[in-house]
Structures are given as structure tokens and as C-alpha cells.
Simulated assay, not measured.
Amino acid sequence: MTKNQGERPGSHDDHAVTVSGLSKSFGAEATRFWALTNIDLSVAPRSFTAIMGPSGSGKTTLLNCLLGLEKPDTGSIRIGGMDITGLGEAQLAEMRRSHVGVVFQSYNLIPSLTVADNISLPLRLAGRRIDRGRVRDLAETVGVGATLDRRPAQLSGGQQQRVAFARALVTDPELIVADEPTGALDTASSDVLLGLLRSIVTDLGQRALLVTHDPRAAAVADRVLFLRDGRWYGELRGATEGQIAATLTDLGRQP
């Protein structure tokens, strides 16, 4: 593992998602708190990156900045060649619909809509043509092809999360962001979902960013980046669950 030396995450220019010199603070001058300080990050094509850190490390703030929900004090965020930090609210909403697919811990499915309509919702909101064949193919890909006419209440938690993955993929986004996607699932369902996330990268050529507290989930990623007090603490590549857990423990012991 590297610690504050060598190549930092985000040192290449040819990636679809690039964060450069990102800093974000909260509060007035006298009580200003820096949630992120000089963060660089790149998510390469066909790559799977996990971000970990204790509560208060800056994970949520970084995620919110990537989604355009928080504006940074300094730095840039480029998604699909576009710097999103200068966009207005309407443009940011369009960016989220078309360029970033998000999977949440709580699924965020619409109870009154069928599985098919939940999957196609981003297209409908963007005013784009709904390709029923693509919706069906995505549902088959994630393993819920037989549930297209059902509503979320008729599905298990694991099935609902698979629908959320299909919805995230339907616009063919630049980046898939998964925020604690296994947090509400049992071990067996979590394993299935992590395998699905891995295949989304390997087989579908997507770029995935996983935010998690779970070393078991992070071990599926190509690399794990650790945040502490709003700064990069270090990085592991090809690490085991035990190595990741040990690093988290070491991070928590640091003064």
C-alpha cells in the first residue's frame, strides 16, 4: 500500500471521470471546516474503484460533489469531458440523468411503477425514447427479466437492488456510482450484487465507483482508496478482505 507518496489517484488525463484539486468547506470563516482538501481522482474505463473511510472522512461530501449536489470551493470535476462545477441546476440534473447512474442502499424505486417503468424512468425524465427491448435486455442481464410487470413491493430486497442496477445502466452512463449498495441485504444477496457490479465493469465495459464501509464489498474492486479527514490516506490494489480490514483498523488508530 502507498501512503501519501508516489502516484496519486487521478494522475492521468485520458479518463472519463477526473477530479482535480477538489476542496470543499462548510461554515463561516471563523468556524470553517474543510470536508475535502485537494482531492484528485480518476476513474478509468473498465475499472472498479472503492472508496472507504471512517465516518466524517469526507466520503459523502465527495459523492455529493461528483453528483453535482454540492459545489466545491476549488477544483474541477470532469465527467465525459465536461467540467460540471460551473453548470447550473438544470444542467446538473441533466448530467445526473444522462451521464451518471446511481445505485443507493435504499433502492429508491417508485412503488407505483412496474419494474419495466422503474428501469426506464431516467429515459422518461430526460425526454428520450424508451427502447422496450433495451429495458428487457437489461432486466435479463441483472437477473430480473421475469419481473418486468411486477411492482417493487412484490420483489425481494436483492431483486429490488438488481432493478436499481438496471435503472442505473439504462442511459449508458459515463460512470456507475454505488452508495453502500449491499447495506440492506443479507450475505447471499450481497454476494450476488457484488458479482453483478463486477460483471458490469468486466463484461459491459462500465466504470464503477463504490462507496462502502464493508471490506468484503470493497475486496471486489480493482483498487481501494482510503479517505481520512478529507484527504487521501492511501490505496490498495488487488487486496483481500483481510488486508482492507487491517488498513481500516490502522486508519482508525492514527492520531
Rank of each mutant, 00 (worst) to 15 (best):
L155T: 09
V163Y: 04
Q154P: 02
P173Y: 15
E174T: 11
V142Q: 04
G158E: 08
A164F: 01
G127E: 14
A168P: 02
T114P: 00
L121D: 06
D172P: 05
G157V: 10
P152C: 07
D131Q: 12
L155P: 08
L175I: 15
G127C: 14
L155C: 13
S120P: 01
L175Q: 12
Q154F: 11
R132F: 01
D149L: 01
I176H: 11
R128K: 15
V115W: 10
I119H: 10
R134G: 09
R129A: 14
G157Y: 09
R151P: 03
V115E: 05
V135R: 03
A139H: 07
G133N: 12
S120N: 04
R150W: 00
G127A: 15
L148K: 02
Q161T: 05
V170F: 10
R151I: 09
I176S: 14
E174D: 15
L169M: 15
T141I: 06
E174F: 05
D137V: 00
G133E: 12
P152T: 13
L125M: 13
A166T: 04
E174C: 12
F165T: 10
D131W: 14
T171M: 11
T114L: 11
D131N: 14
A168F: 04
L148E: 02
R162K: 07
G133W: 03
R150T: 00
A166S: 05
V115A: 10
F165N: 03
V142E: 03
R167L: 02
V144S: 13
Q161V: 11
D172N: 15
I119S: 09
D172G: 15
G145Y: 12
V144C: 13
D137T: 05
A168L: 05
R134A: 14
D149N: 04
R167M: 01
L123D: 04
L169K: 07
L148M: 04
R132C: 01
V170E: 10
D137L: 00
R129H: 14
N118M: 07
R167T: 03
D149I: 02
E140Y: 11
A164P: 00
L138S: 01
R128I: 03
L169Y: 07
